[in-house]
Amino acid sequence: MTEYERIVVTTDDKGVTLLELNQPDRLNPIDPLSTESEIAAALTEAERDPEVRVVIVTGRGRAFSAGADLRNKPQPKTEYDKNATMPQRLAYDYSYGLMWKVLLHFKKPIIAAVNGYALGGGWELAHLCDLIIASEKAVFGAIEVELGVNPFAMSTNYLPKMVGKHRAMDMILNGRKINAQEALEYGLVNKVVPADSLMKEARALADEIAARPPLTMALTKRLIHRAMHVDEDYELERAFAYLLRSTEDTKAAWAAAANREETPAYKGR
């Protein structure tokens, strides 16, 4: 496996690849020009490796991922990263990296082992996995409203289908956080386990799946994804989020969150 700066990837002799977000001191933030691109590259490599049967995604430290990296502006790696406008990114299907679509279309089973905070994009990373084992310390939240944007990696489609319209409205409009037990009750995770048993449980599940026929796993997974249609509003989600990022309110919200200041008074423009 390739070595990365912000993730650690290892594969065992049973065909289980472990992908760990590795910025524990910063709660494993996700930014599009580094972490997202590394995850996309690692998953692409795992998908092409015939020895890999299952992937486990987790975060080191006390967070799975607390979401967007607000304090460090990602450094562009190419001229396109540096200069592309929002309309160009939407038109050419390059939405600050393609991790979300790589996750959605990944052919092999993926298990999220959620060890702590899974917020914003961190929760979206988890729910785009196929199964979720949660530590009893896990906390989930679609908190993008605190930055003045809508969730834009399929949460606005996924959550209403999973928990119903009204509960999803409350979760998203108010950035409502839920604990692991609530997530289990709502059908948002498969299992809740003690924190010190999390990786043992995730590996046991991965070993069980890895022992099954890999082609059957891949094609069955594809059928279930088609039944869910969670990506049908993906481009619209991103278009709305990109539009909102051009508004005064969202710029103010983003700056306040980055500087850990009080929520600004919104003006509707």
Rank of each mutant, 00 (worst) to 15 (best):
A113W: 00
Y92N: 10
K108N: 13
A142T: 06
Y117W: 14
M154N: 03
M99K: 15
I143V: 09
S135H: 05
K108A: 06
N150C: 06
K107F: 09
W100S: 14
A153G: 01
V114G: 04
F152S: 03
V149L: 05
S135W: 04
E124L: 04
D130Y: 01
A126V: 01
H105R: 11
L119M: 15
Y117P: 14
W123R: 05
A153I: 02
G122N: 10
W100K: 14
A153Y: 02
P109N: 10
A138E: 08
R89F: 11
K107T: 14
N157R: 02
I143G: 00
L98F: 14
C129R: 01
G121R: 06
I110Q: 09
V139K: 11
G141N: 10
G122S: 13
I133L: 02
A112F: 04
P87A: 15
L98M: 12
M154L: 06
Y94H: 07
P151Y: 00
F152Q: 00
Y96I: 10
Y94A: 04
I110M: 15
N157P: 00
W123C: 02
A134N: 04
A91K: 12
L103M: 14
G116Y: 09
N115C: 09
F140R: 08
K101T: 15
K107W: 11
L147K: 07
V145H: 08
I111K: 05
A134P: 03
Y96D: 11
G120V: 02
G148C: 09
I133M: 02
I111E: 01
Y96A: 12
V102E: 09
S155Q: 01
K137L: 09
V114T: 07
T85F: 10
L131C: 02
A153V: 03
S135P: 01
